[in-house]
Amino acid sequence: MRNFVRQHPSVLAGLAVTTIGVVALNQALSLDFGDLTRVGAGAFPTIVSILVLLGGVTIISFGFRKGEIALTVPPGLLRAAAGTFGGIIVFAFTIERLGLIPAVALCAFVSSIAAARINWRHTIALVLLLPLMTWLIFAVGLGLRVTAFG
């Protein structure tokens, strides 16, 4: 199965797109379609969802064409993604609870593990300097309404 996906990435991509189309169509059908003289809120979403669905099915069919380029997943992807997205999520959950300085420090720490090799000197410097820098630029310089702590 895994091998199939790797050899035919368009199949998975097409399936994902088709799913988006189905979900969107399902929602669109619950809205008022109206008629040609008074187009309702659901008409345009319905048409576009059907287009997405058709596009998805066509992309699936591309997966079975000759010359489909196999998928190459870079080796460090999981770590890179964990660090980058982890950093963003940590920031989102701490900015209003803890304030800008702790949020930036935590975000910088988590996202610094995204690199293949962690350089602790860089990480420590970032955790100390970035919060101060961003406070000066955004809160003091640009007048962003955030608290430094809490």
């Binding site: 660090g83 980058t84 950093g87 963003i88 920031f91 930036v104 975000c107 910088a108 720490f109 996202s111 610094s112 995204a114 690199a115 090799r117 962690i118 350089n119 860089h122 990480t123 410097a125 970032l126 970035l130 961003t134």
Partner: peptide, 9 residues
């Protein structure tokens, strides 16, 4: 190692 945390923040 420096660039990524800066861009994310």
């Amino acid at each position: 190692t420096v660039l990524v945390p800066c861009i994310v923040v």
